[in-house]
Amino acid sequence: MKTFTFERAATPDQAVDAFTAHERARYLGGGTNLVDLMKLGVESPEHLIDVSGLPLDEVERTPEGGWRVGAAVRNSDLAAHPGVRHDHPVLSQALLAGASGQLRNVATTGGNLLQRTRCPYFQDTSTPCNKREPGTGCSARGGAHRDMAVLGHSPHCVATHPSDMAVALAALDAQVEVLGPEGRRTVPAADFHRLPGDTPQQDTVLRPGELVLAVSVPPPHEGARSAYRKARDRASYAFALASVAAVLAVREGTVTHAALAFGGLAHRPWRARAAEEVLVGSAANAHTFARAADAELGAARPLGDNEFKVPLARSLAVNLLTTLADRSEQGA
């Protein structure tokens, strides 16, 4: 690991100023991903700005009746927050489906959004990787790509985004508040991460020096139920092969509201707008749910060894929607 200088920021403005004042600066949250990437030589910042102690560690009610989650709130605390669990079970469930107890105790909300792919080639500095070193090529496309993307990938990158939390936030129409050298702005969580295109080194739409301040989740939809389901190679402590976050409201047998996002399938949480279009206004039954899943997953372009992800994601979505429809209809 290369040597680096270090400072602790007292305010978000101070953090952003420090970023601007240094070459190769990085914000340090809980460090559960960044410290590892520094050990691997994937990241080699010259200056670390510790933002984990910023006064951004509260989960607060918004005036609209939603929740504003500070960027420094730890994953375990957000998952256990009674109000969040009551209003948005999908968010708590997604957090608890990720990582280990030790990691969730340390990892922050902002850091979770900004974690990098776990593509083994990205993490191995001895292999070509366009995300790590633009222009060197993608080792995964012709290599071990069983865990890689089936939707939205490009010739330059087939990596997936590893976060579970971000998938739930995409389905919840959450907003990400950021502060940068040019001031504050808000980005929809569903648009926060990007597709790789020919610039896979860029995971998100954040501009240089922008710092995540908070994530805001709107109040729950009337009568809606939400949940997260994840398939992985072992029962616990593994990244998703495929996952789905869903919010569904059903009234008198008809879907009145639907929001769906897939994880483990793409370079970003995959908000399933095509599936939602099929769902809303249709009869809440297995036939509709399958049609909706197919409408979205028809765009999938599996790589060869990850074809299994398409039927896996389809089953997860159909089963989860069926469960939520029953609960919504019963008012449970």
Binding site: F6, G31, T32, V35, S76, Q102, L103, V106
Partner: peptide, 13 residues
């Protein structure tokens, strides 16, 4: 009082 992986914590932080 909370469990954490000490290998991923920089002492300076």
């Amino acid at each position: 009082g909370r469990r954490a992986n000490s290998c991923l914590l920089f002492a300076v932080a």
